[in-house]
């Protein structure tokens, strides 16, 4: 049920968009929904981050993954155990762009003996890289439909992305990379027993939603084509705040767009916020210079100590008897 239900929901969303198209609600699905989704995404994202930021980081708790900076002759691991802000930025760069922590992943296996064997396992890292970079490229090449004139950097990405011109239109590699990534992530979620056990509806829903987006997008590009010039006109209308709904854009586009809108609107309320959260994680974004630079806790708890004086009072006789000096 945890798997089937979100699948049905995504199919339902696609059907909703199709029905909307069929009863000529293009204005609703082409203009209102996208505006609402964009607003929910940006405002919701910011609200969530601000909400996080309202809670302080009371203690400096980096997870140190390498040798601390101590004696000058001991080699300091400056990325894994950063001492300065600059080093933290490098650490975060590797986390955000190369998924450093996932790359470290190991697989533990219990064999008879007993003997526990560990070995590197890069599949999760690789799938995640495929998925995220595929997604990034897909978003970047969509820019050609949302900005005009198309700047040369977007054009360049487009060219690399579409270097396989087996037919017309050229194949966008990124779409296939994304599809591969999302499929791999889905398969590992249902095939690895432990991962299936921990998975919630919240995990399957975005996967199905993204699959739906990729599949509808690919159908639109390679199979059920629609008038791309009309699509661009619609999108340009949205981004210039002069919305237009050109005639003759097929249902497939509205399905694609609606699923994208659902994803964006769902984003701030879901685990997808790891996109913002990865920057906010105190175990990664703080330097390991705890003993060198003082960190201040704004809500420093007041506690009642058992003071030296009280302690002396508790044990005065025994201290005197044992000739322990007393203040």
């Amino acid at each position: 049920m945890r798997i089937v239900m979100p699948f049905i929901i995504v199919v339902g969303l696609a059907l909703t968009a199709w029905a909307g198209w069929a009863i000529h609600l293009q204005g609703f699905f082409g203009v209102l929904v996208p505006y609402a989704a964009a607003l929910i995404f940006v405002a919701g994202f910011c609200k969530k981050v601000v909400d996080w930021a309202k809670s302080p980081v009371p203690f400096k708790i980096p997870t140190t993954a390498g040798q601390q900076k101590s004696l000058p002759w001991i080699k300091h691991s400056n990325i894994e155990s950063p001492f300065t802000t600059g080093q933290v930025i490098i650490r975060m760069f590797f986390e955000v762009f190369f998924f450093r922590s996932l790359f470290r992943n190991l697989k533990g296996e219990l064999r008879s003996g007993p003997s526990l064997i560990y070995g590197p396992t890069k599949w999760l890292w690789f799938s995640a890289i495929l998925f995220h970079y595929g997604f990034l490229l897909v978003i970047l090449h969509h820019l050609r439909l949302a900005i005009h004139p198309v700047p040369c950097c977007v054009d360049l990405i487009d060219k690399v992305d579409s270097m396989f011109q087996i037919g017309a239109p050229p194949i966008y590699l990124s779409g296939f990379i994304l599809l591969l990534g999302v499929t791999a992530l889905f398969l590992r979620r249902i095939l690895i027993p432990q991962v299936r056990y921990i998975s919630l509806v919240n995990d399957y829903f975005p996967l199905f939603l993204i699959m739906g987006i990729v599949i509808s997008g690919m159908l639109m590009r390679y199979v059920i084509r629609t008038d791309i010039v009309g699509v661009k006109a619609l999108i340009m209308g949205l981004v210039t705040f002069h919305p237009v709904v050109p005639d003759g854009i097929g249902a497939i586009f509205y399905i694609h767009l609606f699923l994208v809108c659902c994803l964006f609107a769902y984003f701030p309320f879901s685990k997808l916020m790891h996109m913002g959260g990865v920057f906010m994680s105190p175990t990664r974004n703080l330097p390991n210079n705890n003993r060198a630079e003082r960190h201040v806790n704004p809500w420093d708890p007041k506690v009642k100590l058992h003071t030296y004086e009280e302690w002396v009072e508790d044990y005065r006789d025994k201290l005197e008897e044992a000739q322990i000096p007393i203040d």
């Binding site: 969530k48 996080w52 685990k271």
Partner: peptide, 24 residues
């Protein structure tokens, strides 16, 4: 605690249940 610890608040929200931690 959620008001006091950003760590807790962020960690409550962002886990994607990838399972990388499971056998650690």
């Amino acid at each position: 605690l959620l008001k006091k610890y950003r760590s807790l608040k962020v960690f409550m929200d962002i886990c994607v249940r990838c399972g990388a931690c499971a056998d650690k």
